[in-house]
Design a protein around this nucleic acid. Structure first.
Lengths: 203, 203
DNA sequence: ACCTGAACACCGTTCAAGT
DNA sequence: ACCTGAACACCGTTCAAGT
């Protein structure tokens, strides 16, 4: 019922009283099952974020993997307008500690050093939830063109591209991770490397 | 009074009733001077955004100019926790139509084509307000370290860097704006160019 | 075990009335 | 011109009481 309320009227429509009315009970009946509104939202976020494509390093490289994840977060979350405005105000952006650690591990696997990996994940998530917050007010469907016939999808496409390119530039400027290393990583990705890879960041 | 309330208790503390109490009047007295709460927030945003360093192309290049602007928006807005969470939900991110057009013009002057300039400004602003929204809950001062002794300033520094590098990569991949043009721009910036600059994008 | 009813402490705002 | 007072339509939540 909570998810349906949010899909039709956005996060603002999700109230204890509206839920009770939909269920045909008084508002206080809900408190028998949940601790309060924060608990209700936690369950909602759990449900919505389960539909996100997980952030994991696939064979076609971290750039493509990250792009797919961000698009998936955007598409799924966009069904619940205003949810990202809530998530962005939460510690760890509303996801569990484990999900955040998995996100950081992703960037370490991609070759970022420990500090940059811890900064890269919140950077990408902050952008995508920021974008979703903007979309919530403007509408995200094809029926809602903005300036110069640009649609919500154009904005997020540009943004995700810029996020990935920015992170790539930072990765390439890391000491010990310059052109020579990148060539090595490319070779490994193609399965052509049989050496011991002494400088590999992936191990 | 509104600004003071926000500085001490954040955006959530800015209520018509709290303002009235501070002023020693009843809530309805405010309606003689302002139309309602939306109008009050509009005036607050007007005041806060006036303190932002304007986004204008200075002699040290668009990258540095953009970096200064974003940091200034971050530092000034951070004094009013929760304000960015409101701004990010607004069309044109809470600024006036003119401010948005000036932002787009900035990216055109920097060499972005018309479409990318229209996408670049919201991208940068969406990120910085997203970042501010996260900071609002976690605190932004040096007294609030996060994971691994990283501070709010580290996150925004990394993010602004990534935003600029990402936009730079997009600019450089634009047709007619490749290495040859960039070398020319670099020469101009150093004041060494006395040619007529026929291909310059800045004019 | 499951739910109700009254009440409290908040919101923004309308409408009519005061001086 | 400037402000009050009562009231309305909302919130989330506490506490005591019902079956």
């Amino acid at each position: 019922v909570a998810l349906r309320l949010m899909r039709s009227g956005g996060f603002a429509r999700l109230t204890m009283r509206a839920m009770a009315t939909e269920l045909g009970v008084t508002p206080m009946a809900l408190y028998y099952y949940i601790e309060g509104k924060d608990d209700l939202i936690r369950l909602v976020v759990e449900e919505v974020s389960a539909a996100w494509l997980p952030l994991q390093l696939d064979e076609d490289g971290w750039e493509e993997s990250l792009g797919r994840h961000l698009f998936s977060v955007w598409e799924e979350s966009a069904r619940y307008p205003g949810l990202s405005s809530y998530l962005i105000d939460q510690p760890t952006l509303g996801v569990t500690q484990e999900a955040m650690e998995a996100g950081i591990a992703f960037f370490e696997q991609a070759g970022f050093d420990a500090t940059d990996a811890r900064l890269a994940w919140p950077f990408a998530m902050t952008y995508i939830h920021g974008r979703l917050s903007v979309d919530a007010r403007l509408g995200h469907g094809a029926e809602a063109p903005r300036l110069d016939r640009l649609h919500a999808r154009d904005y997020v496409r540009f943004g995700v591209d810029a996020v990935i390119r920015g992170l790539k530039a930072i990765l390439e400027s890391q000491p010990g991770n310059r052109q020579a290393d990148r060539d090595e990583l490319s070779r490994r990705a193609r399965g052509a490397a049989k050496s011991t890879d002494p400088k590999s960041k992936i191990a």
